[in-house]
């Protein structure tokens, strides 16, 4: 699972949806792999306004990446900054959680990630 994808996921438990603690999910015991992906500058710039920046800062720190700036870059800033483009590309597009868990900060439920695929099926008592 890409770090980019994690930015669009919250806990699958319905009663958690209204809690701000259910997003972002927190990686635990995460084994990361890096895919070699061609940089698509335009796609990154276009995706930027859809990304929850605060959540991405949290995820980035939790995965051991350097701290992201407090404010997201504007489209112009990102296009003009080759290093930031490369860094964001590496973090969002290339970095994958291959094994580990994703933990909800509200209910504490842990979702397993195996071979790069997160499983959000819930045990019956949580449905």
């Amino acid at each position: 699972m890409k770090v980019l994808t994690l930015n669009f996921l919250s806990c699958a438990v319905k009663s958690c949806k209204s809690s701000s603690d259910s997003f972002p999910l927190h990686p635990k015991d995460a084994e990361l792999v890096s895919d070699d992906v061609e940089l698509n500058q335009q796609l990154l710039v276009n995706l930027l306004p859809r990304i929850d920046w605060n959540a991405l800062r949290t995820t980035s720190t939790e995965l051991g990446f350097p701290q992201l700036p407090e404010q997201p870059p504007t489209a112009e800033e990102l296009q003009a900054d080759a290093k930031m483009l490369k860094d964001l590309h590496t973090l969002l597009m290339e970095t994958q959680i291959n094994e580990g868990k994703l933990v909800c900060g509200h209910c504490g439920h842990e979702y397993a990630v195996r071979e790069g695929i997160a499983n959000f099926l819930l045990p019956s008592h949580l449905v």
């Binding site: 699972m1 890409k2 980019l4 994808t5 996921l9 699958a12 698509n40 796609l43 995706l47 597009m93 695929i117 997160a118 499983n119 959000f120 099926l121 819930l122 449905v127």
Partner: peptide, 8 residues
């Protein structure tokens, strides 16, 4: 940019 996951 694609990804997949298991969910109900």
């Amino acid at each position: 940019a694609t990804d997949v996951l298991v969910a109900d």
